[in-house]
Design a protein around this nucleic acid. Sequence first.
DNA 1: GCAATACTTAGGGATTTTCCTAAATAATTT
DNA 2: AAATTATTTAGGAAAATCCCTAAGTATTGC
Lengths: 113, 113
Amino acid sequence: MSKFDSTLDLCFSALGDPTRRMILERLARSEATAGELAEPHSMALPSFMEHLKKLEAAGLITSEKKGRTRVCQLAPDAFSPAKNWLTEQSVIWEERLDQFDDYITNLMKEKNK
Amino acid sequence: MSKFDSTLDLCFSALGDPTRRMILERLARSEATAGELAEPHSMALPSFMEHLKKLEAAGLITSEKKGRTRVCQLAPDAFSPAKNWLTEQSVIWEERLDQFDDYITNLMKEKNK
DNA sequence: GCAATACTTAGGGATTTTCCTAAATAATTT
DNA sequence: AAATTATTTAGGAAAATCCCTAAGTATTGC
């Protein structure tokens, strides 16, 4: 992805990978070091660390170096941007109340024929 | 992505692109043809149609050929899988009640030092 | 100090993604 | 029937993604 991605781009893209969702599911339970997080994934460490980087770039996790370990946590309100966007769209969709807008739209289309 | 992606993989990945989110935002308001949807995007039609394909593969929209047009709609419950996953994680996170789990985890780690 | 541990950096390869142009097809409209 | 409209198919280039190995660097335990 390009250098000019919005939070939502980064956030949703990060969530689109199963390895990264597993990491988040793990971190929802408690903080953990990079090594602990990597364990269940049969993947070379450098590859795995890239996933952590993407999660952090998306604002989904934070991490801090403690001694030789890197401790990761779920970011506070990590999921808010994504949830808010989804909720907004759902609300707009539901406000259409039985496709009333479509009814009007179609009516007007018929008129212009 | 591979041929064996889960709904969540496809769904979140589809949402990770601004063009595709714009399409969904448009469709939350009313159904539209491929051409109508493409208009605001300065992009060759074949490129644009690929975005529609991804949204449909992710179960976010449905489409139907009507005459020479392809009419697209938001899929019913399009956002449920994504919203559900996000909500589940938020719940688990919030259940930790002021980092109580972390407190225990850290206590045990200290013990094992 | 020396070895072990926990990453981190560097570089590279296969696949996927995101865009393009050109040409084909299918359904109106004239 | 011929032209126009609305895609659709085919093929391809550039960049991003996701994985790897090999070789650092920094911290900790002996």
